[in-house]
Amino acid sequence: MSFAVARAVAWRTLHNVFTHPSLLIPSLIFPLFFFTAFAGGLSRVRDVPGFDFPLGYTAFQFAFVVLQSAAFGGVFTGFGIARDFESGFARRLMLAAPNRAGIVLGYGAAALIRWLFTVAVVTGVAFAVGMKVGGSGVDLFGLYALALLLNVAALLWASGVAMRLRTMQAGPVMQMPVFLTLFFAPVYVPLSLLKGWIHAVAVVNPLTRVLEAGRGFLAGSPTDVGAAFAAALALAALFSLWAVRGLRNAESAG
């Protein structure tokens, strides 16, 4: 029964996204834009003494952009949830769905499919501009698996906020922490080249492990894979509690 609800909710979200360019394009443009601005504009960073990523700056940034697109894909779906609460449409869903967990599941499935579309485009563009990959297909799959967990975690975070605040004004509250977590990881240079306060922040940032492992997968020399998956899973588990409590909060607020 909750599967039927999930499928209906996912259909509606995806139908809206794929038939309205204004909803589809931002989630597609942002990663491509970051990829262009960073991989293109900052490629000289590979010449900084101590930069040791073997595949060049395009692949180095590709790993970040894949993770960033996953996280923002989840947040954009969170915007949709907030919009549904603000317009009252969520109430319609809550009323129709015998099992309300299916609603969250449906939004989650939609976020995932939406991200898969984005990442397919980003990957296509990366290979088209000559990105080199050291790892095998299995390794590449490792990077995508990490990103997928991040997509789920970000969606659960954003949906938890959306269900608590139930207004589009909550957009920055969903987006800003994700943005900061992403950018307080070693985005531009490897962790070893960060100095000072940003190094201290990056070391404790769970996303650092995910990003470094993702780059390891691309280079064909995966490192700290266990820790990275553990960090991503922990984020997803933590935010699933946050989202479920958010759902209870929305239910008790009517």
């Binding site: 809206n16 309205h20 317009s87 009252g88 449409f89 969520a90 109430r91």
Partner: peptide
């Protein structure tokens, strides 16, 4: 319900 919450899209 009071507000006919429909999806404009």
């Amino acid at each position: 319900l009071q507000e006919a919450a429909l999806d404009p899209l």
